[in-house]
């Protein structure tokens, strides 16, 4: 049985460099998956393929809730169901925090202004920055900006949330506040696919940890197994380097 997100033989090349070399992955509804691995291993490319920010080999197949990730109408449907949080936040600097959250529901879902504003305030409250709604993103700290970005993605009520190294651009003292929001989110049953270097978060929150290297999935399983008792030498090397520095 294929998963809520199902990936079959995903391949992607940049010229002669193969970034993804045949990935098969199923993620169940409500599952929280953390993807770890060295930089350049293809983990960001993998999740960017799920909403087709990156194109991929036409022979590959990705489905979200049964809808193939292709182009046109099907892609629009997938993108409305898949939220994404970026390493560099990518908030819209010319809009206030509240307007950032309201934009997609207004334009894509045709929500009324009043409903979108009420929803935005609820979401901003939920990520702990209800009092900043009228400020512009440039006036917030990195941690606050990333929480706005999470609220903005949640405003589309996505079935799946993709996180692309959400804490890598943050000062250390702000990592915790973002991870707390993500931890709360995981409890609500949203399907989450998280590319991260935060091993603590992966071990506490993930249902499954995937270790990638050189465009392939090397090893996967429950966090206790992958992080504490890795079977593959490459996983062991990576974890050794990350945990002992």
């Amino acid at each position: 049985m294929s998963g809520f997100v199902s990936i079959r033989n995903l391949r992607k090349s940049y010229g002669s460099f193969e970034a993804l070399r045949g990935i098969d992955l199923d993620v169940a509804k409500g599952e929280v998956v953390c993807i770890i691995g060295p930089s350049g291993s293809g983990k960001s490319t993998l999740i960017r393929c799920i909403n087709r920010l990156e194109g991929f080999d036409p022979a590959s197949e990705i489905r979200v809730d049964g809808t193939p990730v292709t182009t046109g109408r099907a892609l629009a449907k997938v993108r409305a169901e898949v939220g994404m949080v970026f390493q560099s936040f990518n908030l819209f600097p010319h809009l206030t925090v509240r307007e950032n959250v309201m934009l997609a529901p207004r334009r894509v879902r045709r929500t009324t202004r009043a409903d979108a504003a009420a929803q935005a305030d609820r979401l901003l409250e939920r990520v702990g920055i209800g009092d900043q709604a009228d400020k512009y993103p440039g006036h917030l700290s990195g941690g606050q900006q990333q929480r706005v970005a999470i609220a903005r993605a949640l405003a589309m009520e996505p079935q799946v949330m993709l996180f692309d190294e959400p804490t890598s651009a943050l000062d250390p003292e702000m990592v915790g506040e973002v991870l707390d929001v993500m931890r709360d989110l995981a409890r609500t049953g949203v399907t989450m696919i998280v590319v991260t270097h935060e091993m603590g978060f992966a071990s506490q929150v993930a249902d499954r940890v995937i270790f990638m290297d050189a465009g392939q999935i090397v090893e996967q399983g429950p966090p206790a197994q992958v992080l504490s008792d890795p079977q593959e030498p490459r996983t062991r090397n990576f974890l050794g380097a990350v945990l002992n520095h």
């Binding site: 909403n51 970026f86 819209f92 997609a104 334009r107 894509v108 993605a153």
Partner: peptide
């Protein structure tokens, strides 16, 4: 920045909406 286009696409905005609401105002 490219991230503005990517964030718009990820939110489900189409090309015209991305231009009118995100890119051109900046």
């Amino acid at each position: 920045p490219k991230g503005q286009f990517e964030a718009s696409a990820a939110l489900g905005l189409n090309g015209r909406q991305t231009m009118a609401d995100v890119i051109l105002p900046q």
